[in-house]
């Protein structure tokens, strides 16, 4: 019977189902009918009743399961991947932003002799360097002003 599954018509299946309900099928024929109902997607009230009595699901619904499982897997994987990306991005932001940003929005970073400075040591080093820069710029401005004055005296008097 297996090799003829694909040529059984709906009416023939229904006829077999009637015979089953009338207890006119042998055990072997019942097993074959069970196999056919499992494999073929035919559906009618009579066929569905016999399937219910036999405790089997239709072939079509069985076939759907693997597909749904595949869709569920793709969605699951996509969701996991998206979550990982978002978590990674948020983690990067938190890691890079929080260590050097003060509560007033200022940013301070200091390294000395290969060691990152923090707290009061960091602020002290930054203040020293900034003071050197200010002194440098002030001195250069004074020199430039002095040069301009000398130039004016030499060429404009």
């Amino acid at each position: 019977m297996k090799e003829n599954d694909h040529i059984l018509a709906l009416s023939e299946i229904e006829e077999l189902c009637r015979l089953y309900l009338d207890c006119k099928l042998s055990r072997l024929e019942e097993a074959e009918l069970q196999y056919v109902l499992l494999k073929l997607p035919y559906s009618s009230p009579l066929i569905d009743d016999v399937r219910a009595l036999m405790g089997i699901q239709a072939a079509a619904s069985l076939k759907l399961k693997p597909k749904m499982h595949r869709k569920w897997n793709i969605r699951w994987i996509a969701g996991i991947a998206a979550s990982v990306v978002i978590l990674f991005a948020v983690g990067l932001r938190v890691a890079s932003g929080s260590d050097h940003e003060a509560t007033d929005g200022a940013v301070y970073i200091a390294y000395s002799n290969g060691v990152e400075l923090t707290g009061a040591q960091m602020m002290a080093q930054i203040e020293r360097d900034n003071a050197k820069v200010e002194a440098f710029m002030k001195r250069m401005d004074e020199i430039e002003a002095e040069e301009a004055r000398i130039y004016n005296e030499l060429f404009n008097d």
Binding site: A106, V107, Y108, I109, A110, N113, I126, V133
Partner: peptide, 17 residues
Amino acid sequence: KGVTITISIRDGKYNRT
């Protein structure tokens, strides 16, 4: 070793040394 680096962004001023 032997290197000091400071970076500060404060009050609209950006200084690196």
